[in-house]
Design a protein around this nucleic acid. Sequence first.
RNA 1: CAGGGUGUAGCUCAGCUUGGUAGAGCGUCUGGUUUGGGUCCAGAAGGCCGCAGGUUCAAAUCCUGUCACCCUGACCA
Length: 623
Amino acid sequence: MHQWSRTLIPTTREAPKDAEVPSHVLLHRAGFIRPVGAGIYDYLPLAHRTINKISAIVREEMEAAGASELLMPALEPFELFKDTKRDEAYGDNLFRVMDRKKRMNALAPTHEEVITELMRGCISSYKQLPLNLFQIQTKFRDEARPRAGLLRCREFLMKDAYSFHSKLEGPGGLNETYDAMYAAYTNIFTRCGLDFSAVEAESGPIGGSASHEFMVNCASGEDTVLKCKASGYAANVEKCEIGPRKAPSAGYFVGEPTGTLEEVHTPGLPGIEDVAKHMKVKPENMLKTIVFKVESTPEEKAKFGEEWIIAVVRGDHDVNEGKVRDISGCKIALADPKEAEAKGFAIGFVSPRAAVGKAGVLLLVDRDAAVGFDDAKGKSMFWVTGGDKKDYHIKHFNWVRDFGKDPLAAQAHAADKGYAQGGLRGGDKYLVVGDVRNALAGDPSPRAAGSNLETGRGIEVGHIFKLGTKYSEAMGLQVPDEKQQRSTVIMGCYGIGVSRTMAACVEMSHDENGILWPVALAAYHVVLTIMDVGSARQQAEAKQLATQLSAQGLDVLIDDRDERPGVKFKDADLIGIPVRLVLGDKALDAGGVEFKLRKDTQGKGGVVAMGEVVAAVVGAVNG
RNA sequence: CAGGGUGUAGCUCAGCUUGGUAGAGCGUCUGGUUUGGGUCCAGAAGGCCGCAGGUUCAAAUCCUGUCACCCUGACCA
């Protein structure tokens, strides 16, 4: 049991002006955190207690799933990152520290390199695998823009686990451990009392194997999630597939021109919305073109030369970079404007015509943009797109007339296949129709015919990932297998943002008076509010009750501050303790104390007889 | 990294346009008052006006530079 007057809970009436999101405001006001620098925070006693509770749950479930805890250093020699090239991949996000010998070190953003190096020296046989090791430790990332309090920090607490396998399938394989981690994460976030979803996530260009994110469902979340109720499919928008869309009845691209091609001067209009407004059309009548540069290896460049990809989607849609990458089969990056303009692309004003007659340019057209006839309206489509020169757009773009019938005809087979695989190196193709945009609410489900996707927002608190051999390959982690062949170890990694989980919980669960902690994460289960601290009787009763509650394994906070009742009630609500017991003369005279749950916002609760209080609190806490 | 904004008391902010030597509310401390949802009254302490240059008789205020923090975007295993 702790006394409020003997610990540090600096509640405030107002939050700092720069705090905007609820978790930031409330964690500050409730005395959980204080800023130290950009994206760096003090974790005060309440926060520390809550974080310890999250950590304890994580530990239990990780151990139960067969993982062992260890602790690796946060400070690492910089050379470690060279083998995996993550000194470059992380770029400025990697904190660099020069030591007295002028040697460069890194503050670890994550520990793949360290643990792979560790394993290289510790295991020498496939018989020692599988292994799953985890730690709970402070991570450092020099984020370009830390924001939203604890949700995006430069220093934060993370549980990171790494598993090692000699095979993918079967007992002891990566897939088995991955599934075990999926189950463990589900247990962890369920026990934390969070409303969450496990969703398919973008697994990046390496390997293309499975990856799931665990998202706390919350309208203020940074990530967009799509779900199909019928099939249970759920995915991050970065990853979400779109089910078969209805093909245009007349065929792709086919439609009569809606008028003669007309150039319009559109200077100083930065966004598609502005251009649409200026040209008096809807964004859905515009074609949005995004230019990507293929990032080839030197060998590829020698063979294929410089390569570009132009993705075309409807103006009200967004290009999905992962889908462009997957369909083209190329590593890509948004084109550098200067470089692209040198190639003849008027960035910001590119139309599909820009691809015509240029070698090494692939045009990827989203299915919704690859039409010329509006079936719903029963007439040809009206398209506005770039004018292929600075500050100009064109009206009445028609695919067949203005892009060219021959190139379209040559690709009819690709369009019919729908999700055509192709691209620059698939032959002579330079136009492919497919799914290259972000999914939206109402889009067809990719897993259940006739069902539609729904959207929600989420905060990513966990991410599990099949790494494959990315790190073991780069760092030479191999063990001999049954046949005495050296084989590269297969890895998985599994992260949980512990400090972010605390903040996400507040985002998910608060009201106008403060935080509502789930019992499992509450810094204290119960707060005893002493009405008159000058009353020896109230003090004695409080102490006795607190002792009884503590004996039941409950965490008890006694508000023994010499404050007016109103102040104490406000603070109790603010810091969000699930159960409040008020010790005042009125209730004591009636032989009890006042019992109120934080989630019951109305009224002041009822009097519970002294002999039944402990059972009542235990009952409330247990569920 | 680009664009925008802000740095004045522990917190929220006013003062700056039009230079004249520092203000309010909340919080803190003292005394009184009050005592079931952030009482009321009186008094007090508390500031290198982010930092460094410059202009001026005089700078929180004008100029230059710099640092820090925040917002939007880019970025984000």
